[in-house]
C-alpha cells in the first residue's frame, strides 16, 4: 500500500465528482419526466400510444447500457441526417450522449417502477373518490399520484443508485468523471489497488448518502400513515 499515492490521487479523483453529479442529476430528472410520459402512454389504453412505450421499455431493459451508450455516441454519427439535425450539438459531445443514453435507460426502468406503484393503489380509495364525485383526472392527480409515489419510492431509490453507478460507464466514451480520472491514474502508475479501492470507497459513500436521503423522504412522505 502506497499511502502518499492515495493522498495524492484522491483529490484528483474527487475533481471528477462534479461530472458524476451532473450526469446523475440531469439523467435522473430527465429520466423521471420520460418515465411519467411512458407511464401515461402505457396507461392510456390506446394501442398506438401503449405499444411504442412498451417497445421502448423492452429494448432499453433488454440490452446492456454500455451498448446503448456506444450506439448513441459512436453509432449515430454514421448517418448524415443525424449530423445535420438540430440535436447534433448534443450528440457531438460525449457528455450529451451519456446523458441521452442514461436518460433513455433509466426512463424505461423507472416507468416500470411507477407502474408498480400505480397498480399498488388500493381499489377502495379510488371507489371512495368516485363516491365523492371526483373525475377520472382528479382521481389520478389527487389519489393515485401521491399514493403511487409513496409505494414506488423504495424501488426508485434502488434505481437511483443504479443510475449513479452507471454514470461510471461514461468513462468509456472519453468522459473524465471520477472513474475516467482513476483509470488514467492507474494507466500511469499501475497501482490498481490503491486507486480503485479509494474510488470504490467514494462510490460507497455516495450510495450511503443517497440511501439515507431517500430514507428521510420516505419517512416524511409516510408521516401521516405511521404517525
Amino acid at each position: 500500500m502506497d499511502l502518499t499515492l492515495i493522498t495524492e490521487s484522491v483529490p484528483k479523483i474527487l475533481s471528477g465528482i462534479g461530472i458524476t453529479f451532473q450526469l446523475m442529476l440531469l439523467s435522473a430528472i430527465l429520466g423521471l419526466i420520460l418515465a411519467v410520459i411512458l407511464l401515461l402512454m402505457r396507461l392510456s389504453g390506446k394501442w398506438y400510444l401503449s405499444w411504442p412505450a412498451q417497445i421502448h421499455i423492452y429494448i432499453f431493459r433488454g440490452t446492456p447500457i454500455l451498448v446503448q451508450i456506444f450506439i448513441i455516441y459512436y453509432g449515430l454519427p454514421q448517418f448524415e441526417f443525424v449530423r445535420d439535425s438540430i440535436f447534433w450539438p448534443i450528440l457531438r459531445e460525449p457528455f450529451g450522449c451519456a446523458v441521452v443514453a442514461l436518460t433513455l435507460n433509466t426512463g424505461a426502468y423507472v416507468c416500470e417502477i411507477l407502474r408498480g406503484g400505480v397498480l399498488g393503489v388500493d381499489h377502495g380509495i379510488l371507489e371512495a373518490g368516485s363516491a365523492l364525485g371526483l373525475s377520472a383526472q382528479q382521481k389520478f392527480i389527487y389519489l393515485t399520484t401521491p399514493i403511487a409515489a409513496r409505494i414506488a419510492l423504495p424501488a426508485y431509490s434502488n434505481d437511483f443508485i443504479s443510475l449513479m453507478k452507471a454514470t461510471s460507464l461514461a468513462s468509456t466514451i472519453t468522459l473524465m468523471d471520477m472513474t475516467g480520472i482513476a483509470r488514467t491514474i492507474v494507466a500511469q502508475t499501475f497501482a490498481p489497488y490503491e486507486i480503485f479501492i479509494s474510488l470504490a470507497i467514494i462510490y460507497m459513500i455516495l450510495t450511503w448518502v443517497i440511501q439515507k436521503t431517500f430514507g428521510r423522504i420516505e419517512k416524511y412522505l409516510s408521516h401521516y400513515v405511521n404517525p
Binding site: I161, K165, T167, S168, S171, V186, P192, Y193, F196, M204
Partner: peptide
C-alpha cells in the same frame, strides 16, 4: 454493502488488474 455500492465496471477493473499484479 461493498458489491452493491460500487459500480460494476470498477469491480471488474479492480479484479482484473489487481489479480494480475
Amino acid at each position: 454493502i461493498i458489491f452493491r455500492g460500487t459500480p460494476e465496471i470498477l469491480v471488474i477493473l479492480l479484479l482484473y488488474f489487481g489479480s494480475a499484479i
